[in-house]
């Protein structure tokens, strides 16, 4: 056979995947966000009247509007929950960096065989259901839970952490730690040790070598880890729902309320679409970071 190998089908696969599992649902949600609520099955209008043919489709599009989006800007609740979600995600990402970096750094300094075991230990929690792990935190943090039992053993005052923002941060940091550690570990482990010798040779103490060489070189991992955690944390629902208080304001909960309590599918969709739009910026940043990492890795 002459010419280029036939990779047509294989090359289509990712697009097919994205089309079926991202683009199609996205368009459905986008369409929904332009609809209005209605007491019907399903609870929104308009719906395409296929029997009316082309006119039905036209009528359908004519009935779509941006009213729901306008409402999002009018009610401070949505802005507040956006800001609150971004805040939760940003602070948790910061904490994750502070905790995850030393872990990843420490891991990368061990002998190869020990590193494998440590890597396993980081991945191990994934073998248990996410929900069970979050529930376990309820058992730890509740008033009569493990934490307070422990504290009272030492005569320390009890902490009421469950259903507070602190509990949400604990849950977020706990659940996302591997997503921070793994990319950091990947860059730190690859780092050429002779660079540190070179830095020492050129007059750096260990600390100086870390800040002048190790850290700047690990920035792609920092970026990847931060975005990998930040993006899903903005939309996190389970952790604030289970560990947070009723006052914990996050987008995931807002969407839940719109969808279930208000039966307002268009509003829930609009909030979701707006969230996606907000997240496009960090996602694009993440993409660029990845490209950079690949280039630097040449």
């Amino acid at each position: 056979m002459k010419g280029r190998p036939r990779t047509g089908l294989a090359a289509l696969a990712p697009f097919l995947w994205l089309g079926v599992f991202f683009l199609f649902p996205f368009l459905l949600v986008a369409k929904l966000s332009l609809s209005d609520t209605a007491l019907a099955m399903p609870p929104y209008a308009p719906r395409v009247d296929w029997s009316a043919g082309w006119a039905g489709v036209r009528a359908f599009f004519a009935a779509l509007d941006f009213e729901t989006y306008a409402r999002l800007t009018r009610d401070s609740l949505y802005i507040a929950s956006y800001l609150s979600s971004l805040m939760f995600a940003a602070v948790a990402t910061g904490i994750l960096l502070v905790i995850g970096y030393p872990i990843a750094y420490g891991m990368s300094r061990f002998a190869a065989s020990t590193r494998q075991a440590l890597l396993m230990a980081v991945i191990l929690p994934f073998w248990t259901s996410f929900l069970i792990r979050v529930y376990a935190w309820i058992a730890v943090l509740k008033p009569e839970g493990l934490l307070n039992t422990f504290l009272s053993q030492f005569g320390l005052p009890e902490l009421n952490l469950l259903n507070t923002d602190t509990a949400v941060y604990i849950g977020l940091v706990y659940a996302y730690l591997p997503f921070m550690v793994l990319p950091l570990y990947a860059v730190l482990e690859k780092q050429d040790q002779s660079l540190l010798e070179a830095a020492a040779d050129l007059g750096c103490t260990r600390t100086q070598a870390f800040w002048r060489v190790t850290f700047p070189l690990s920035l792609p991992g920092v970026g990847a880890g931060a975005l990998l955690c930040f993006i899903p944390m903005v939309g996190e629902f389970v952790i604030p729902d289970l560990l947070g208080g009723s006052g914990t304001l996050m987008l995931g909960k807002t969407i839940w309320t719109e969808f279930f309590a208000n039966r307002d599918w268009p509003a829930a969709s609009a909030v979701a679409i707006a969230m996606l739009a907000t997240l496009v910026i960090p996602i694009v940043l993440y993409q660029r970071q990845q490209t950079k990492m690949i280039e630097a890795g040449r």
Partner: peptide, 16 residues
Amino acid sequence: LLRDVNRQWTRVQTGQ
């Protein structure tokens, strides 16, 4: 009305 009531309930819960 349901919407407004739920909105008020959210305000009760979150202060927003």
